[in-house]
Design a protein around this nucleic acid. Structure first.
Lengths: 193, 193
DNA sequence: GTCTATACGGCGATAGAC
DNA sequence: GTCTATCGCCGTATAGAC
């Protein structure tokens, strides 16, 4: 793996775990296996490094949402359920990118707020659009109630996922998975035909 | 207001907005109207100040959950709906304490994780217990489905609130309130008789 | 209890040899 | 591109006068 690639990956994991202020260039350098001054051969500042990570992550996030909807599944219910559980799995798995995404959507570093926002706004909109499309499909084939707007349902879906991400600190994966299944049950009862 | 009281309040607001590492003793001092060295007459360290704020906030949180359920309302649906919307209102209002709570439940500062956890675990359990009681009540009087466990429903309820708290950065209060109402609609359809 | 002054370490960032 | 050395700044925390 190229040094710059590794730098992006390792710093992303540190930012996700300890936040922007909680992650020092020295710690990043140590994890990558360089001296901290060497990082500046790749990035002119901590800020530009962070923003580059952000750009990469937001692109990946949209990709993940799109990919999580498995078109081999027959019913909308199964497609949406599977997508939901894939997200839950990613929340606790080694995929720190979704933790990075959730953390900085909520708590952007003070001075980078505006620049972050432009990246995040775009990806939030795209992710929503992908899900709305799938839900409208479910409404067309008569699986999902037409009493509710597709956008409204999609919002609730993401809202639940974000809420679940808050529970990671308290529970292990099996417990979280059980919670997610029960929460899905409530959600599905709320939107089904 | 006593100096120590003011110190707790002002530092809480800064911690909630900028995080633990993002809040310096100098900024706290400035907001309180003291020199930073004077803070050490009240607390021996930034850590002890932060933990004292945490203790206060977790107690207030349990109190807020208990108080948000208005016993004058006749139906379980109305009581739960009103409680839900009070929380949403507090998310965006001047009440920084709920922002403090949500922030550090999810992202505790690295070195204080264990001590924070003991406070938060206790308050999470108590808040859940209060809501479970109200939901079981709704099940007894036949408003809420008995197909679902009260605990499961309570988890979904808090999960939605936490998810909504993530949306603050994107939307203003009226928009968030509309979202919350629509999300509630999905939720209620999911649990009603 | 609040102030001024200061200690000391870690931070982001730069200079310059190799 | 990576290193050693170093800068200037700001962080937490302490000492001591009032």
């Amino acid at each position: 793996m190229q040094t710059k690639e590794k730098l992006l990956l390792e710093s992303m994991e540190l930012f996700a775990a300890y936040g922007y202020e909680g992650t020092s260039m020295a710690k990043i350098a140590e994890k990558v296996g360089l001296k901290k001054s060497s990082l500046y051969a790749h990035y002119t500042s901590k800020e530009t490094l962070f923003l580059d990570v952000t750009e990469k992550i937001t692109n990946e996030y949209v990709h993940l949402v799109a990919q999580s909807i498995d078109n081999n599944e027959q019913s909308s219910e199964k497609r949406l359920y599977q997508s939901f559980m894939i997200h839950v799995k990613d929340l606790v798995s080694d995929d720190a990118s979704i933790q990075f995404y959730n953390r900085f959507v909520q708590y952007p570093p003070q001075n980078l707020e505006k620049e972050l926002f432009t990246y995040l706004e775009r990806s939030e909109e795209e992710a929503l659009r992908i899900l709305v499309k799938e839900i409208e499909n479910g409404q067309t084939v008569g699986e999902i109630s037409k009493d509710l707007e597709a956008k409204q349902i999609a919002h609730t879906y993401f809202c639940l996922l974000e809420g679940l991400s808050n529970e990671i600190i308290f529970y292990d994966y099996p417990t979280l998975q059980r919670h997610a299944e029960r929460i899905w049950e409530v959600f599905w009862r709320g939107i089904r035909m």
